[in-house]
Amino acid sequence: MTEKAVTMIPEIELDRVSMQYPSAHSDVLALQEVSLNIAKGEFVALLGPSGCGKTTLLRIMADLIQPTSGGIKVAGKSAKEARLAQKYGIVFQNPVLYDWRKVRHNITLPLELMGVKKAGRYRKAEELLELVGLAKFADKYPWQLSGGMQQRVAIARALAMEPEILLMDEPFSALDEFTRERLNEELLSIWSKVGNTVVFVTHSIQEAVFLSDRVFILSPHPGRLSAVAEIPLPRPRTREMRNGEVFFRLIAQIRDRFEGV
């Protein structure tokens, strides 16, 4: 392991986390003894084919489900305590915007739940809309926006409560390639300003490499952590890096890990 990993302050620690789903015929082992540490302010990707348990792992971190066995610590506390302390922002594959709220009010929703005053909520929403480049669309309804714009609203909503940890579950997988690459760059520029810890689930090797400091590679049947890749590309990452030799070599190395899976 590299030096960074040794000296890091762990923000998320998983210790031999396993997850078993009961089913009609026999129980399915979705995750087998996954142990990993994620540093504060780090951008990591959970990468793997479908069925490898990467989404399950993210949901365990978010305390949306509880693991069958194993321990999880978020900033020294349990995942549930972290959730109750409202440390998480989540972005799903679908934007999950509320149809009955305009863009602005979709973003203020978590702030309403936190009891932030109206003026504060609106100021924050204004700020976030500026950040994701949607200031002009504040008073539109979600259906009036394109898929990419909707997902940016979802990101702004996730950032509204200034979460320490941003959990993203294949947020761009429903979008076309062009939109996805543009949003990758925008996400990095937003992250460079916010600087929180990001856990990003994806099945795209390129996306994982372009975005992350480290890529956790998961394999299916049963879902387990099979490798970790350090991404030494400097920051800020630029579009040109996508054409660089390093980028391609990293992709090739990671792809090799999946041979025979």
Partner: peptide
């Protein structure tokens, strides 16, 4: 939507 419910859960 189930995801909308999970979102609420993540906000505690």
């Amino acid at each position: 939507h189930p995801s909308a419910l999970e979102l609420m859960r993540s906000y505690a």
